[in-house]
């Protein structure tokens, strides 16, 4: 039982990270119907930029661990949001009128490009985050030692998700994003600037992905230029699991996938851990392609 709860907290922490990345996929897919393959590499870039800022500016030494990390997170968000917007401008915007699959190929190209840029700049080896930024202690909850890091990661991702949920549901821009996701043409007729909505999506999604990268760096302590691929594919699985294009769905799907994976690794086989998520992906696409919270949409002719 103790094992179960420890795995549960681990699954929730990882699931929170998946959910943050999944939000970026689902928002872009909702508005553009495009799998943004490069999103996973923006996540990696977030982890690397976070490391660079952390070591070069010594933020945590000057401001203390808490405010230092918060400021760092905001800087990473800002930078990755800019990269995200640039990505859209260069790789996707010229293809708005093209067949959808052209944009998918372009996304794949952008992913390869970004990943190899990170490799050329930072090298192919694992990079290590400095120790002791997040507390390494554990707190006792009902007789269980739960590492603080897990709680911090889970709280951060929950906080970010709540902020996004509020933004999407309550603000005018959020309403515009939802409207454009339902029907771009009609949204345009209602006076919504769809291009601005798309820009907004490419600012917010990558910002969340960048923070997820930073969290992975802080949680696991080491990062690699290829790590985005695995996380990205799992996060996309999470987005499909919850129903692609559906923002609460991505949150639920991410947390659920994290827990499924942690439980699978603990009780089935650790060696097959990575295959579990892909099996979930295939099963969900075969049996319920619209996801858990998605609505059934007929294919347009």
């Amino acid at each position: 039982m103790e094992q179960f709860f420890l795995q549960l907290t681990n699954g929730l922490a990882v699931g929170g990270i998946y959910a943050l990345i999944a939000l970026g996929y689902t928002m872009v897919y909702g508005v553009l119907k495009l799998i943004n393959f490069a999103h996973s590499d923006l996540f990696t870039l977030g982890a690397y930029l976070g490391l660079t800022l952390l070591t070069s500016m010594a933020l945590t030494d000057r401001l203390g661990p808490f405010w230092g990390t918060v400021l760092l997170a905001f800087m990473v968000m800002l930078l990755i949001a800019i990269v995200g917007a640039l990505l859209d401008r260069v790789a996707y915007r010229p293809l708005r009128q093209s067949p959808r699959l052209s944009a998918v190929v372009s996304a794949l190209g952008a992913s390869i490009f970004l990943q190899n840029t990170v490799m050329l700049v930072y090298g192919a080896r694992f990079q290590v985050y400095p120790q002791g930024i997040l507390p390494s202690t554990a707190i006792r909850v009902m007789g269980l030692d739960i590492p603080m890091v897990r709680l911090i990661v889970l709280c951060t991702s929950t906080l970010m998700m709540l902020a996004l949920f509020f933004f999407i549901q309550k603000t005018k821009t959020g309403t515009a994003i939802r409207a454009a996701a339902i029907d771009q043409g009609a949204a345009r007729l209602m006076g919504i600037d769809v291009n601005r909505v798309i820009l907004m999506v490419f600012l917010v999604g990558p910002a969340l992905g960048g923070v997820a990268g930073l969290l992975v760096g802080l949680y696991y302590g080491q990062i690699n230029f290829t790590m985005g691929w695995g996380y990205g594919l799992k996060a996309f699985t999470a987005a499909i699991l919850g129903g692609i294009g559906n923002i609460p769905g991505a949150m639920v799907g991410g947390i659920l996938l994290g827990v499924i994976e942690a439980m699978g690794a603990a009780y089935l086989s650790i060696a097959w851990k990575d295959a579990i998520a892909f099996c979930v992906l295939i099963l969900i696409l075969i049996f319920r392609p619209t996801g858990l919270l998605g609505e059934r949409v007929a294919e347009k002719v």
Partner: peptide, 25 residues
């Protein structure tokens, strides 16, 4: 057989998943 009816980009993601499962296996 079970995935062939999926639309373009979904098929793309599933085939990536299958490739990975084979490699892990």
């Amino acid at each position: 057989r079970p995935i062939i009816h999926l639309r373009g980009d979904y098929l793309c993601i599933v085939t990536i998943g299958v490739g990975e499962i084979v490699r892990i296996a």
